[in-house]
Amino acid sequence: MSTQQLFYRSVVPVNFQRHKDWSVKTGESYAFAAEVNSVPVTAVEFAQATAEYPVVFAGSEDTVFPAVILGARSNENLHVDAEGRWRGRYIPAFVRRYPFVFSQDAEGKTFTLNIDETFAGCNQAGRGERLFDADGAQTQYLKTVLGFLQDYQTRFRRTQAYCKRLQELKLLQPMQAQFTLPGGEQRSLSGFMAVDRAKLKTLPADVLADMVAKDELECTYLHLASLRHFQDMLERMPKEGASPAPAAA
């Protein structure tokens, strides 16, 4: 399950010389996300995201991060319909920030705002919100975008700390969701992890108390409860699609 780059295609820094006449129209179509089966989420999003999506952990031994599962196949998002509408109550912040994204320097101290110029909502016809005014100053829209991404970056760092805690406690274990097609064909979705509930119960009281104080235990149980939504994918799959069996560790 890959979360690298996802729907970003041609990312360039936002600047007046290049984008002085540019406008951006968002919210009309999420077709750009139609072929991704997972996107990252921050811990602060768990309460809303886990209410309708499975939330798992993806990454490597060194770095893991939470992600919502959106489809049963690698190029499938069951929450975007043929017209590009998002078929869900909650849209992850990773999706809502598109076509904008921060890049950072080698030291990780300086952030630059970038835009994916291939996004269908980017235009020079005045549709949507302008990035710069006639004097070259940032519009209120662009300032709002910057504020949103700065807030996202703060939440991202806090989520990294939470994931590091799960790794240090060795609570994450590989997981696989298995799906049975009507004809009997077996398919599986793997490459992610879930918290080991049994190990969680063995943690010392002082560790659990610290996790409670930092809202980490709440996030963990929200994550575990969200795994039931693998079964809900059945309702969103095409009639000729897969019939999912319960997720199996």
Rank of each mutant, 00 (worst) to 15 (best):
F230D: 04
A194R: 10
Q4L: 12
H19R: 04
V56N: 01
H223P: 02
A31V: 10
R18S: 15
V11R: 02
K20A: 13
M175Y: 12
E235Y: 15
T139H: 07
P238Q: 04
E129P: 08
G71P: 00
E83S: 13
S38I: 03
T220V: 03
V145C: 01
Q167A: 09
A209C: 06
A67T: 03
T3D: 10
F230N: 03
H19E: 05
K109F: 10
A49S: 05
S10D: 14
Q17L: 14
V145F: 07
S23G: 04
H229M: 00
A49D: 05
Q178T: 13
K201A: 15
M175L: 14
L6R: 02
Y152G: 12
Q167L: 13
N15M: 11
A43L: 12
F230S: 03
Q140K: 14
Q160G: 14
T144N: 15
R87L: 13
Y30R: 06
D232T: 09
Q176V: 15
G108V: 01
L227M: 06
A43E: 05
K201E: 14
R18E: 15
L171K: 05
P66D: 02
E52G: 00
L70C: 06
V101W: 04
G126Q: 04
M211T: 01
F16D: 14
D21Q: 11
V95F: 02
F16E: 15
L113R: 09
G88A: 03
V24G: 03
R96W: 01
W86S: 00
F132D: 08
F102R: 07
Q140C: 08
L166T: 00
K143L: 14
N114S: 07
L169M: 08
A125K: 08
S74T: 15
A33V: 03
Q153W: 10
F111L: 13
D105S: 05
A177M: 05
F94T: 09
N123E: 04
T3M: 09
H223A: 00
P13V: 11
A47L: 07
G121W: 00
S23Y: 00
V44E: 07
